[in-house]
Design a binder for these strands. Structure first.
Lengths: 335, 335
DNA sequence: GTGAAAGCGCTAACAC
DNA sequence: GTGTTAGCGCTTTCAC
């Protein structure tokens, strides 16, 4: 079952390939009757343009590369869903690569995308201080670039983000309203700007509410469930009388909460726990987790739209889209 | 920063494009010195073959389509990780599409893959009784096809699966060993063969251990967390004295377990709960879930290898790879 | 050992 | 309004 080509249509219709091509493209210089004959036969024979040929001709690959730090949590999966809906709808291919939170793997993924000659890259980097060189090179080559969620420092590109600072502050406000007075922050790696912004929101809130902000109130945590567990141990060591916990991601919050409960701490009665991300994970743990719910699907859509804009007109200015997240109050802080 | 082409290399070296092409391909008919000159300059200028041109020439897209039912749980993400590692390593592109457990969306995804002219399809169908037609058509066109985890009925293709029947039996054995005597099964939709096999394993175990298997002991559940919650309600209505629960997936098990605990049932003391899938989800819930851990990354690798085999030689026979899963005993059945 | 030429499927500039 | 021609970048006869 061979694929049918324009040439074949042309032969059968006694026309030239170019006429057929024009007819299919809806060229107005083609007699209406011819156009109809062409599209009828094309329909009958199930003609489909060969995308590879189109690409070679146009110098495009019609492909967008998406680089995600991980896919274990539904975070990336949801964003990707939004991206795919928009790009598949426009006939573009989407190629995904996972960096496993490892800058070197991310580097390899970027090379992969260059090899594949993608028309644009949507990325969420593992580490804002690494690979900046490569991202800049990609941009320099004129490849459209959009960051979502996280963005590296000193790389010009469009980005889709959430106001981490303000939202963290609001989350803290919620904890205080729930009676927390000794709140601890499980902060993320310094090389992730979002982590810094959330920390800033935390600190600002402490000041605003007149709480002491000594060295003890911020505990460094990583990105995994186990990192959260370890941070919980550290928390109890440092500040056993804490009554509130704000973790920089749901993953860390869940790890910490589970560990606390293992150690007999009652959540939320003894310690309220809040996270940040808003995937379905926060609803399957016990108790359900209060969290900042980001509009992940929309984040994907917007990123896709930004990349389309850039692909259509590479000289379009970089844009930053800031989405608003909302706070989902659940059992882990209900007291 | 234009991409450098073979023609350009040829001009600079005073050679013909064909010679350069041959030299790069390592043709033995090229003088060693020429070959070296060519590859040196290619290296210096950072020459990269244009994959689109290669594809047009070879009639291949060098792309494999992967169709997953969902990506909310880490199940698909892990399998995809294995697939990507193998295929990216071989220079193939991987395109993923999510069906959202909806056969119609799946159908659209298959059309998408045909449009993209993928060289092969790796799929996990939502519904074994639907879209069979399309899968058969794809195969008929000579497009290599591999199923993983789930496979539709009456479609010839290679597949990578787990022995659901035997593993379910072993899981039941574990529950019985833990003292369960009135075990209920939360079964999946009839249109998913794995669900039927797991049910069969459940029934076989009941008989083997001399338990009654009346109509009450199987409760139909769907595929989501909420389906699991609803099934838990039904369970308590039908058989309030049940002491063990075997759900056909972790998702359903987690939904059910959370609901049971909300209703004051103690897990595992009052009711042991076991699932099936083995993603990280089972370790973040409370109590941690006993489950059948499938080798998901390997499942992806094997699927990728099977598709490569078929792409290399389309007349290669279909093969079924059966992987062995192992039982992870955790707190949800510890008693 | 190397070059010239053709062609993968498509489109667009240039004829008429 | 339609046909002819050329070319996207690459490989592969076929010549010499």
């Amino acid at each position: 079952m061979k694929r049918i080509t324009i040439k074949e249509l042309a032969e059968r219709l006694g026309l030239s390939p170019s006429t057929v091509s024009r007819a299919l493209a809806g060229d107005r210089n083609i007699r209406r009757e011819t156009r109809e004959r062409v599209s009828r036969l094309a329909g009958e024979l199930g003609y489909r343009p060969n995308p590879v040929a189109v690409n070679l001709r146009s110098g495009r690959s019609n492909t967008v590369g998406v680089i995600v730090p991980e896919m274990v949590t539904p975070f990336a999966a949801t964003v990707i869903g939004g991206i795919q809906r928009v790009l598949y709808g426009r006939g573009l291919k989407v190629i995904i690569a996972q960096s496993d939170e490892n800058p070197q793997t991310e580097c390899g993924n970027l090379e992969l995308m260059e090899r594949f000659m993608v028309d644009g890259v949507i990325a969420c980097p593992c580490d804002a201080t690494r690979n900046g060189e490569i991202y800049r090179r990609i941009r320099q080559r004129g490849v459209p670039l959009v960051f979502y969620d996280r963005a590296p420092l000193r790389v010009d590109a469009s980005r889709v983000i959430v106001d981490d600072f303000a939202t963290s502050y609001f989350l803290m406000e919620h904890l205080v309203r729930r009676g927390c007075r000794r709140i601890v922050h499980l902060g993320g790696p310094a090389h992730i700007p979002n982590a810094r912004e959330r920390l800033r929101g935390f600190r600002y809130a402490l000041g605003k509410f007149g709480f002491v902000s000594d060295g003890r109130s911020v505990i460094p945590a990583g990105v995994t469930f186990d990192d959260g567990r370890a941070a919980a141990d550290e928390l109890l060591r440092r500040m056993p009388d804490a009554d509130g916990l704000f973790a920089w991601t749901d993953t860390v919050a869940i790890g910490a909460m589970n560990r606390l409960r293992e150690l007999g701490i009652r959540v939320p009665a003894q310690m309220a726990v809040a996270g940040y991300s808003g995937t379905v994970l926060s609803t399957i743990v016990n108790p359900q987790l209060t969290t900042v719910e980001q509009p992940l699907d929309e984040m994907g859509c917007r990123a896709a739209e930004l990349i389309l804009e850039k692909i259509a007109d590479p000289s379009a200015p970089d844009r930053t889209v800031t989405l608003t997240a909302c706070i989902r109050e659940r059992a882990s802080t209900a007291r």
